[in-house]
Design a protein around this nucleic acid. Structure first.
Length: 477
DNA sequence: TGGGGTTAT
DNA sequence: ATAACCC
C-alpha cells in the first residue's frame, strides 16, 4: 500500500524505440508460435512434453479511475473517486493515500477526504471498450488470454517461453536476469530449468506491461507463476505498477501469507462462512482438515477443489475468453412499484443493449429479465425469467431501420408479469436485461450443414428444434 | 453495496 | 432458474 509507482513511467521516456521493437518482435514470434499448439474445442493443447506451465496474471491499477484520468487529464494529480449510486467503487492512489477505500460509501469517503473529486461511473461503456483493448493487445502476444472482470487477464506463456528457450544456448542461461521482483527475494538457480522458464516469463510480463502503457497509457501489476492461482496471488505482492515472479520453493510461503481463507481466490463468501462454522479460518487449517469430513460438509467437488487450492495447487487451464457470452445492462434504485415505471426503465436498458448488440454483430437468441425485490435486510437474491427471441425479431436486430424495440419490450413485459403479480403491491430495487445465447452470423461459406443454419431458412428448422428442447419459458398469448 | 461477468447444478 | 464464484 505504501509502495510508490516506479518502473514503467520512468522507463518509458528513454526506451521508447527499443520497446516498440520489442513489441513487434513479440507479436511476430507469436504468429509463428500459433502452429506450435493445436486448437481443440476452445482449449489449446500444449505440444510440449513438460506439464509445468508459465502463467502471467495482469491486473490494471484502479482501472476505472485510470480510464477517467485519460478521458479528462485535468483529474490527474487530484484525489479521484469513481461513483456508482452511493458508492465510491474505486479510486486513484492519491485518494487512497488520503484514506479512501474501494467500495466505500460516498459519505464516508467525503468525510475522510473532503477534497475528493467524484466522477460518475455507472455507464461502463468506456471501461468496457478499454478493457477489450487490453485483452486484444495481450492476445497479440499469445492467443491464450482469459479475462477476469474488466481489469484482469491471465495469459498462458508456456509456448512462448518454450520458443524463447529454444533460441538460447545453455551457456546463455547464466546471463538470464529477472524482470521485476522475485517473491521472498529468493535466490535464482540458473541451473534450474523451472527458474529459467519463470525468468523468461517475467521478461515477457514486462514487455506486456510496457506495451499496455505505451499503446494504451495504462499501468498495472503482473504476477508470474506456474498456475493461475499463484500467479494471481503473487501479482498483488508489490502494488501499484510493479511485477513479481514466484519461484516454486516460495510457493508455500506465499500461500501461508494469506491471513484468512476468504482471501483465497475461489473461496467466496458462502464457502468461507461454512468453513468458519467448521473451525477452519487459516490456510493451514484447511490444509490439515480431514478430507472425508470436508467432502461430507461441502460435497466432494467443492471440498476437493478448495483443499487443492489451499496447497497452492490449481490445474485449471487458461481458457481463452473470446468474445463475451452475454450482454447485460442493469440499474438499481430505491424503489420501483408500478408497471409503467418498470417499463420505462426496461426501455432505457434496452436502448443501450441494442446498440451493443448491433456493434458486436452476433445475434442473441435468448433474452432474460432479472429483478431484485426489496427485502429489509436479507441477502439480496435475484429472480429471472428468460425466453427465446423469435427469429423474425432476431433478423431485425442488426439494422436500425425497423422498430425492434416494441416487440422486445413486449416480450420483456410478459416476462415481467410472469415474475411480478402487478395486481398486488410490489417493491423492486433492481432491473436488468440480458441478451445471451449469442450466435455468429452465418458466413455461409460452404457445406450442407450451413444450408440448415441460414437465417432466412431458419424459421422452420429452429422452431422445430425448439419444440423439443424448450427449456426457456413459452411466451405464447 | 455497483454494474457488470462466468460456470456449475 | 438459481447459486456460487470473480472483478
Amino acid at each position: 500500500m505504501g509502495n510508490l509507482g516506479v518502473g514503467l513511467e520512468e522507463e518509458a521516456d528513454g526506451e521508447e524505440e527499443e520497446d516498440a521493437a520489442r513489441g513487434t518482435d513479440a507479436a511476430r514470434e507469436m504468429d509463428a508460435g500459433a502452429t506450435g499448439g493445436e486448437l481443440v474445442r476452445d482449449q489449446v493443447v500444449s505440444t510440449g512434453s513438460s506439464s509445468s506451465r508459465v502463467i502471467v496474471h495482469l491486473d490494471l491499477d484502479c482501472f476505472y479511475a485510470q480510464v477517467e484520468m485519460i478521458s479528462n487529464p485535468e483529474l490527474k494529480g487530484k484525489p479521484l473517486g469513481v461513483q456508482q449510486k452511493s458508492l465510491v467503487v474505486t479510486c486513484n492512489y492519491e485518494a487512497r493515500k488520503l484514506g479512501v477505500k474501494k467500495l466505500m460509501n460516498v459519505r464516508d469517503a467525503k468525510e475522510k477526504c473532503p477534497q475528493l473529486v467524484l466522477v460518475n461511473g455507472e455507464d461502463l461503456t468506456r471501461y468496457r471498450e478499454m478493457s477489450y483493448k487490453v485483452t486484444e493487445l495481450l492476445e497479440a502476444f499469445s492467443p491464450v488470454v482469459e479475462r477476469l472482470g474488466f481489469d484482469e487477464n491471465f495469459v498462458d506463456l508456456s509456448e512462448m517461453v518454450k520458443k524463447r528457450l529454444q533460441r538460447l544456448q545453455s551457456d546463455e542461461h547464466s546471463a538470464m536476469t529477472v524482470s521485476g521482483h522475485i517473491y521472498n527475494n529468493q535466490s535464482i538457480n540458473l541451473h534450474d530449468i523451472l527458474h529459467i522458464r519463470l525468468l523468461i516469463g517475467s521478461q515477457i510480463a514486462a514487455e506486456m506491461r510496457e506495451a499496455i502503457y505505451n499503446q494504451l497509457g495504462l499501468t498495472g501489476c503482473a504476477g508470474v507463476a506456474s498456475n493461475k492461482l499463484m500467479a494471481k496471488l503473487v501479482s498483488g505482492v508489490f502494488k501499484p505498477n510493479q511485477q513479481t515472479v514466484l519461484l516454486p520453493e516460495s510457493c508455500q510461503d506465499l500461500i501461508h501469507s494469506l491471513n484468512h481463507i476468504k482471501e483465497m481466490p475461489g473461496i467466496g463468501y458462502k464457502t468461507a462462512k461454512r468453513l468458519e462454522a467448521l473451525g477452519i479460518s487459516s490456510v493451514h487449517d484447511l490444509q490439515t482438515f480431514s478430507s472425508k469430513i470436508l467432502e461430507k460438509e461441502l460435497g466432494i467437488s467443492v471440498a476437493q477443489h478448495i483443499q487443492k487450492l489451499s496447497f497452492g495447487e490449481d490445474n485449471s487451464p487458461v481458457t481463452p475468453s473470446g468474445p463475451p457470452q452475454s450482454f447485460s445492462e442493469e440499474d438499481s434504485f430505491k424503489k420501483c412499484s408500478s408497471e409503467v415505471e418498470a417499463k420505462k426503465k426496461i426501455e432505457e436498458l434496452l436502448v443501450s443493449l441494442l446498440n451493443r448488440v448491433r456493434q458486436d454483430g452476433r445475434k442473441p437468441h435468448t433474452i432474460r429479465l432479472i429483478i431484485r425485490r426489496y427485502s429489509s435486510e436479507k441477502h439480496c437474491s435475484r429472480e429471472s425469467r428468460q425466453c427465446p427471441i423469435p427469429s423474425h425479431v432476431i433478423q431485425k436486430l442488426g439494422k436500425g431501420n425497423y422498430d425492434v424495440m416494441t416487440p422486445i419490450v413486449d416480450i420483456l413485459m410478459k416476462l415481467f408479469r410472469n415474475m411480478v403479480n402487478v395486481k398486488m403491491p410490489f417493491h423492486l430495487t433492481l432491473l436488468s436485461v440480458c441478451f445471451c445465447n449469442l450466435k455468429a452470423l452465418n458466413t455461409n461459406k460452404k457445406g450442407p450443414i450451413d444450408y440448415y443454419l441460414t437465417p432466412s431458412l431458419s424459421i422452420t428448422s429452429c422452431s422445430g428444434k425448439r419444440s423439443f428442447k424448450m427449456k426457456d419459458t413459452h411466451m405464447e398469448e
